[in-house]
Write a protein that binds this DNA or RNA. Structure first.
Lengths: 339, 339
DNA sequence: ATTGGCACTCAAGATACCTGAGTGCTAAAC
DNA sequence: GTTTAGCACTCAGGTATCTTGAGTGCCAAT
């Protein structure tokens, strides 16, 4: 087993490296942290850490830098989550509590998280697998067009303009609306499609063309509701740390703009630490992200569907702060959306 | 006046510099463009151009680079807009014609524009100053909460969850909904607030607390509808050209993430070339953007409200392509949203 | 007005040298 | 066994010097 003091040395190295972004040497360690031993002793400890691949020397005879494995140990064993400051807590609470609209809440959250951590932040919309239909509205828009609106359990709204391909009378619209609501209200999204066959069949033959169109659009809306969606904020923070990313910053940015990739990335993680999970460097499956760390937490909405919120930054990041912030924002989101 | 051939030389310099990103010298010019004169002659022309501050030498005795003023002249006088290729036209048309939802159309447009130009693209939502209310929906959400939905002329939807602070009966909800619609349908957004006083007064005293709340939320929705909103895509393209930006890439990215700044930036411009307007380098008011060029066009929705769409990149960009693409996307957007 | 010729300039690359922070190891001290 | 002082060694990064070549500006000839 690795001796106690060596582990302390690792902690010190991680902290100093994060603070200074310079490889850290034995002398600096004794000076800055109250080790009651000489630099030579620290060097012995460092030799052990290097043996264990927890730290590495960028070139023979310069200071040491934590490896992914070193950060991992730091996060798992050493990182006492530093609670947010009171002003910070207060900011989150008052900032988020003002709004109840999902888009607004998530938009604010992701910007706030980005500010709190000085990292790029990401939030995923809850998937609505278990949600159900609250109501369907059909609103005339012009001579031949109506607006279909689907409202779900989770305050989520989807709309689509539908061209009926001919003029229609109010009564017909009313009938459509009534039938849709009778059939669908309360139905889980997963069952919507099958229920709609009944809807289609309830109309006279000459109306079929229109109803088929309506059905297909509603199915689309449901799919859109179930599909993944993501918000991002603070790309500039990532840019500012470009040098920590070993040159593939552009690739990272590109990957992040690709929703599919980003979704895959953050969904690899399952919560562990304080409800927060961390992937460090090469622990990420995707090569593009092998110099970045992803910190994500789960939050739940009232249908108990969970989604991710987190930050993405260079492996050389302030883990304490970031884990604390992600954890806090995830908790507040759950509180806000879960009632 | 500047002689004809000198102007041709400027065009050649701009083209070569855009293509090679290297300062371009007299010899290269004679070789690559069919000037029937010697390098020495070209050098005389270059001296004129330098005199006019249209080009500049980064260091004594290296090739020349266009100045902002040089690019300006190029754009104004020399740049024959190259029409999009047929495949490109087709791509735009089929890509955008599939969807009629505003969010979807704008989202797709901005991504497409970014791809077409290899630049960061931006699109502004139409402001709804002249739009009016199409309908108001009030949908029960839980024991004490309702969802207010405001639908406008321009297929734009805003929603907000409202806590009524107590249980309520269906009849009351129905009454609220009916009154709101009677009052507001067809009303321009600008007049909504005053019309709502009548709504408030039409209720018995004991209901007032609730109705006040409803009114204030609807006003909020209207404001949200009128406020500016922007979508951005392709930040990675900008990152890839970081070196062309003279080091302040991070600042640019930061400014762009700040909606207010971005709005100001693109609203400085008034259409001129083919309905497209260009701000080059220091022509932008904001110092941050003095190494970038902004190309924007206007598009209109059915209420004849116009909004901007465009790209942002380094001054050293392919003006022909970008102007053509922005112009095309703006036209298609107008076509799609204007009917 | 154009051109060949030529001296001149300067960024960028190559080469060499120096410095100092930091190491690993050994032998002595605790 | 652990700690420490001492010392030789390494090497990234800074500085200094040289070389090269693309490109210029200008002049005299066409």
């Amino acid at each position: 087993m690795i001796p106690e003091r060596s582990i302390e040395v690792l902690r010190a190295i991680v902290q100093d490296y994060i603070a200074t972004r310079e490889p850290v040497g034995s002398k600096a360690l004794v000076e800055r942290h109250g080790f009651e031993v000489s630099a030579a002793t620290i060097r012995n400890d460092m030799a052990i850490l290097e043996e264990e691949e927890l730290i590495v020397a960028p070139h023979t005879s310069s200071g040491r830098v934590p490896t992914d494995k070193g950060y991992r140990l730091f996060v798992d064993r050493l990182n006492q989550v530093k609670p947010l400051s009171n002003p910070e807590r207060h900011a989150i609470e008052s900032f988020l509590s003002e709004s109840s609209d999902l888009d607004e809440v998530l938009g604010k959250s992701v910007r706030m998280l980005s500010q709190l951590t000085n990292q790029m932040a990401v939030v995923q919309y809850p998937t609505l697998g278990r949600a159900s239909v609250r109501s369907v509205e059909v609103v005339p828009v012009s001579e031949t067009k109506v607006l279909l609106i689907l409202v779900t359990d989770a305050n989520r709204i989807q709309q689509h303009v539908l061209d009926l391909g001919g003029v229609f009378d109010q009564a017909f619209i009313g009938e459509v609306r009534a039938k849709l609501n009778t059939l669908l209200v309360g139905a889980p999204l997963t069952t919507v499609q099958e229920k709609l066959t009944a809807f289609e069949e309830s109309f006279a033959q000459e109306r079929r063309a229109v109803t088929v169109e309506v059905v297909s659009q509603i199915v689309n809306l449901v799919d859109a509701n179930r599909s993944e969606k993501i918000l991002v904020a603070g790309a500039a923070h990532l840019a500012r740390r470009e040098s920590d990313l070993g040159g593939n910053f552009t690739d990272v940015l590109e990957a992040i703009e690709e929703q599919v990739v980003l979704l895959k990335l953050i969904n690899e993680l399952q919560a562990d630490h304080n409800g927060v999970s961390v992937r460090i460097g090469r622990e990420n499956q995707l090569d593009t992200f092998n110099t970045t760390t992803v910190v994500v937490g789960d939050y739940q909405n009232q249908s108990a569907e969970s989604a991710k919120v987190g930050v993405i930054g260079p492996t050389r990041m302030d883990y304490s702060t970031n884990i604390a912030a992600v954890s806090a924002v995830a908790r507040y989101l759950t509180k806000l959306l879960g009632n």
